[in-house]
Computed example of a mutant assay.
Amino acid sequence: MHAQTPVQIAWVTRDLDATEKALTALLGAKKWVRMPGVAFGPDSCTLHGRPADFVADISLSYAGDTQLELIAPVRGDSIYTEFLATAGPGLHHVCVEVDDVEAALQERGAEVVQRGVMPGGMEFAYVSAAGAGVPYIELAYIPDEIKSFFEYVKQEQQ
């Protein structure tokens, strides 16, 4: 397995405004780009191995080269609603970019909690080591179209 640098740190929250304000002050993020109503359907997403159907509001920014992601569940059951119910708002996951999600999962021998494909073709899988204090690691394949969008978000920080 390759050593990998996390490309993203993510929080789950009930209040995007408050979390944006706090992370702007604490980490120096300058501008947040919101994506309201991002839908994940049962044809492209699973939760605990079963089809999942949920919607979340997402907000992105950067602190240096690290992407900051805020996720506020809107409806449906997801890894995010489960986290809020058990832990409350807080640090949820770090993301590492991989070339192949399936190969990365096999290499790690990790059990998938939630998996899917976002609009735009970004494939993701969340694995957990909660007993060791690591809520989730997200393994993500990020296609060029999504990388271009992320670069736009990053340039908004200039």
Rank of each mutant, 00 (worst) to 15 (best):
M1V: 07
H2V: 08
A3N: 03
A3M: 08
Q4L: 15
Q4W: 04
P6A: 14
P6F: 14
Q8P: 05
A10T: 12
R14H: 12
D17K: 13
D17R: 13
A22C: 00
A25Q: 15
L26E: 02
G28Y: 03
G28N: 05
G28R: 01
K31D: 12
W32M: 11
V33C: 12
V33L: 14
V38F: 01
F40N: 06
G41R: 15
P42V: 04
D43E: 15
S44Y: 04
L47C: 09
H48F: 13
R50K: 15
A52G: 02
F54M: 03
F54W: 01
A56D: 09
I58W: 02
S59K: 05
L60S: 02
Y62M: 06
Q67N: 02
Q67C: 13
I71L: 12
I71D: 04
I71C: 09
V74Q: 13
G76H: 07
G76L: 10
D77H: 13
S78F: 08
S78T: 02
I79T: 10
T81A: 05
T81L: 10
E82T: 10
L84Y: 09
T86D: 09
G90I: 00
L91G: 00
H92D: 10
V94H: 07
C95Y: 00
V96K: 05
E97R: 08
E102Y: 02
A103Y: 00
Q106A: 15
G109C: 06
G109T: 10
E111H: 04
R115Y: 13
G116R: 09
V117D: 02
M122C: 06
E123A: 14
F124A: 01
S128C: 00
S128V: 00
A129I: 00
G133M: 05
P135N: 14
Y136K: 03
Y136P: 02
L139E: 06
A140H: 05
Y141F: 15
I142N: 03
D144G: 04
E145L: 12
E145R: 12
E145W: 01
I146R: 11
K147W: 10
S148F: 04
F149I: 14
F149R: 11
F149G: 05
Q155I: 04
